[in-house]
């Protein structure tokens, strides 16, 4: 099956981006899609929610070097496609995971090569033929900053994860405005998360003027998985959030070009 799913999961910190992104990545992989998960958060998150073992040092460190004028460039023989083929790591259900450098005790400086390689990779990824039938799914850090600085150039659809709270709704509106100012044609799928009452999802939809793709209930399984530091799919496979993500996968498959 040919699909055309280029997704960026965005929202306020704590809205549930990583849990939904990770569960979605594995759900789509189980349905037979090839999935590349892009983790552009310098703080830990997506790999834990995927249940993936990650190397202590980001593999992408080896992919970039400083060239003339001290500017970063890929090492010889590596471009965006090969960077993914060589430096992405395995996650459960066959998902491939490419990670940005993570902040260390010395800040971002020691992992700058990985950060630069990640940025060059996602910008060069574009319509690379090698990945034309892959699902590309990015998990962005909290807030609108990476959207403003073009950290999801591959995204044709934003999956907005929003709680029915004012901070979360205001954040989502900022992200939507910035994303549309950059590219008017970008699609939005609204996921209302941690829904407790009947009015929660419609309230968010009204505020953002977007239809609800999926409403995800408050779920004890997520809290328990987070406390255990485990992937939701492994920790609580029958939880309502897993079922809601199945519906999100249906929605995305239905919305993409086959």
């Amino acid at each position: 099956m040919l699909v055309d799913m280029r997704l960026a999961v965005v929202g306020k910190g704590g809205a549930g981006k990583s849990v939904i992104a990770a569960t979605l990545a594995r759900t789509l992989a189980r349905r037979g899609h090839r999935v590349l998960a892009l983790d552009s958060d310098p703080l830990p998150g997506l790999s834990l929610s995927l249940g993936a073992d990650v190397p202590a040092e980001p593999p992408l460190l080896a992919a970039a070097e400083r060239g003339e004028n001290n500017r970063w460039r890929f090492i010889h023989g590596v471009g965006p496609v090969r960077a993914i083929q060589r430096y992405a790591t395995d996650a459960p259900d066959g998902v491939r995971l490419l990670q940005i450098g993570k902040v260390t005790r010395e800040g971002m400086a020691p992992v700058m090569a990985a950060t630069q390689a990640f940025y060059m990779t996602i910008h060069g990824l574009g319509r690379a033929a090698t990945f034309h039938d892959w699902v590309i799914l990015g998990d962005l850090p909290a807030g609108p900053r990476q959207t403003a600085f073009d950290w999801a150039p591959y995204a044709e659809r934003y999956v907005l994860v929003v709680e029915p709270t004012w901070q979360s709704m205001l954040t989502a509106r900022r992200i939507t405005r910035i994303a549309r100012a950059a590219r008017a044609e970008v699609e939005m799928s609204l996921v209302v998360n941690k829904v407790a009452g009947e009015q929660d999802a419609p309230r968010v939809a009204d505020f953002l003027d977007l239809p609800v793709a999926v409403a995800v209930p408050v779920d004890e399984g997520v809290r328990s998985a987070e406390r255990a530091g485990a992937a939701l799919l492994d920790h609580a496979p029958d939880s309502p959030v897993v079922r809601a993500v199945e519906r999100l996968a249906d929605h995305l498959e239905g919305s993409s070009i086959h």
Binding site: S18, P44, G45, V103, R105, G107, E226, G229
Partner: peptide, 18 residues
């Protein structure tokens, strides 16, 4: 009280110390 949050706090604390 869960790992991602504690780990984020720990990394930020280390940076602030430095």
């Amino acid at each position: 009280p869960y790992f991602k949050s504690l780990e984020t706090g720990r990394r930020m604390a280390a940076l602030a110390n430095d």
